[in-house]
Amino acid sequence: MNKGTLYLIPNTLGGSSDTTPLSCIIPESSGQITASLDYFIAENAKSARAHLKRISEIHPLKKPLQQIRMAELNVRTDKAAFPELLAPLLEGQDAGLISEAGVPAVADPGAGLVRLAHEKGIAVKPLVGPSSLLLALMASGLNGQSFAFNGYLPTDSEQRQRRIRSLEERSRHEKQTQIFIETPYRNEALLKAFCTACRPGTLLCIATDLTLAGESVRTLPVSSWKKRLEKGQIPDFQRKPSVFLFLADK
């Protein structure tokens, strides 16, 4: 029996709050394949169904939304459940892995499932869609030839400062852009941490609400961000998804 294909389905970056036309964010080919599936493994079933509803406005779904099978895979999912999630693919059914926002398996709990799919000989097909990390890097003006995604920094203040200084030294030595994300309500705290730990000449970019109506991307030296904070000029990024990038000076 032929095995099914695991499609990596791109989602929008704004969830249900995104009013940008879907056709401006998700390529038609990705939408068509998404609409052709009736089994999804989603980080969040509710947001996945909302995305499928938007897809259905452009491409007819294979089955009514209520009849589409939806399994969840998130940070609380035990790895012991992964084989069951892939079982339908071993029987020949195609499936879509879909993140709550952006592309799956990048800063996303789906990576482990993709690895298991490879181990079981299941074909994995990534579909084109928005990645906040790459969009931020593209717009930052920082080094796009060498870069590293570091995910979340430690929440402990001292550990976070040490980690930032260590990565700044690496950035300086290797001329490498360092990329970070943070829980949206802690964006201001992270900006202050960069201003405290980094050298004045280090370039820091903050990219907020990418692809959304309120999109903002700004790259400035840390010294300039620090002056803005001292004047109370806080970026409009509170509780908004943001990507932080820095490139150390010489």
Rank of each mutant, 00 (worst) to 15 (best):
P109K: 09
K240Q: 09
G110H: 04
Q233A: 13
R76C: 05
S223C: 07
A80M: 10
L204I: 04
I234G: 06
K240L: 11
L22A: 12
V217Y: 02
L191H: 04
C24F: 12
A35K: 09
A87L: 14
C205V: 09
I68L: 01
S47E: 15
F194W: 03
D108S: 07
R218Y: 02
I25N: 07
L133V: 06
S216G: 00
F149T: 03
A207Y: 03
A136P: 08
K53C: 06
L13P: 09
P10Q: 05
R162S: 12
S171R: 03
G31A: 04
T208P: 02
S132P: 02
R239A: 13
P27F: 10
A213Q: 14
P221G: 00
L167F: 02
L127C: 09
L127N: 09
E168D: 02
G31S: 06
C24K: 14
I26A: 04
G4T: 01
P104I: 11
L65D: 05
G121Q: 14
I122S: 04
L134V: 15
G201R: 12
E158L: 14
A35C: 08
K250L: 12
K231Q: 15
A95F: 02
G144A: 05
L153M: 02
L22E: 09
T12N: 06
H173G: 15
G201C: 11
N143M: 07
G201F: 08
K46Q: 03
G151S: 05
E168C: 05
L191Y: 05
T19F: 13
E182F: 09
Q161L: 13
A35Q: 04
K79Q: 13
R239S: 13
K79Y: 13
S223W: 03
V217I: 01
A71P: 08
T19V: 09
A48M: 03
E174Q: 11
K226G: 09
S216R: 07
P126W: 01
K62N: 01
E169P: 08
K62C: 09
S36Q: 10
T19I: 14
D236R: 15
S29K: 14
D236S: 11
I55K: 01
K226L: 05
H118S: 11
H51A: 02
Q93G: 08
V217G: 01
G232M: 00
K79T: 13
R239L: 11
L85Y: 13
F237W: 15
A81V: 06
K226R: 07
L6E: 09
F194M: 00
L134E: 15
G121N: 14
T202F: 10
F194Q: 01
L116C: 03
T155V: 12
W225H: 00
A193S: 04
L135E: 07
L61P: 01
L22G: 06
A95E: 05
L137C: 06
L13D: 06
K79G: 14
S99V: 08
L90I: 15
S224A: 07
L97E: 06
A87E: 08
R172I: 10
L190M: 06
F194T: 00
R49H: 05
L52C: 00
A207I: 04
N44S: 09
K231G: 05
A189S: 07
G232Y: 05
S140A: 03
R49D: 00
G96F: 00
P154W: 02
F149R: 05
L134D: 08
I98H: 11
K192G: 09
V128F: 10
E215L: 01
E91R: 11
E174H: 13
D38P: 01
Q66P: 03
F194R: 04
L134H: 11
H59C: 04
P21R: 10
